[in-house]
């Protein structure tokens, strides 16, 4: 199971990558995409929407079921991965790169400190 060292993680299997200027990129982990199996639909938030940490922010759907994705931190949506509208399987094939879900402008940067590191997340899923 791939768990990149440079990322932060949540209990609910989202990953967070801090980028420049108080913006983070968010996706779901390799573990999560394997558990959910083949994804057929991703419902993303609108750019400009505000979310608090742990709000339901997106939905990913496999052939069998729909799973909620939670905002790992509070912030405003500044970009979503439009490519997923045509091919949700990108999330399965490249969960940490091409399969990113959305970018948030942090409203409370210190929230990042409460997220898990790769080591803690690895033991969470093992």
């Amino acid at each position: 199971m791939n768990v990149p060292d440079a990322l932060k993680y949540t209990e609910s299997h989202e990953w967070i990558r801090p980028d420049e200027g108080g913006i983070v990129t968010v996706g779901i982990t390799d573990y999560a995409q394997q558990e959910m199996t083949e994804l057929v639909y991703v419902e993303l938030p609108d750019v400009g929407q505000q979310f608090s940490a742990k709000d339901e922010i997106a939905v990913v759907e496999s052939v069998k079921s729909a799973s909620d994705i939670y905002a790992p931190v509070s912030g405003e949506v500044v970009e979503v991965n439009e490519a997923l509208a045509d091919d949700a399987a990108i999330v399965n094939n490249s969960p940490f790169d091409d399969g990113w879900l959305f970018r948030l402008k942090l409203s409370n940067p210190s929230e990042i400190d409460y997220l898990m590191g790769a080591e803690a997340y690895t033991s969470r899923i093992s």
Partner: peptide, 10 residues
Amino acid sequence: KQTNKSPPPR
């Protein structure tokens, strides 16, 4: 049958 792009009907 869904006529437009839509989440899976369940």
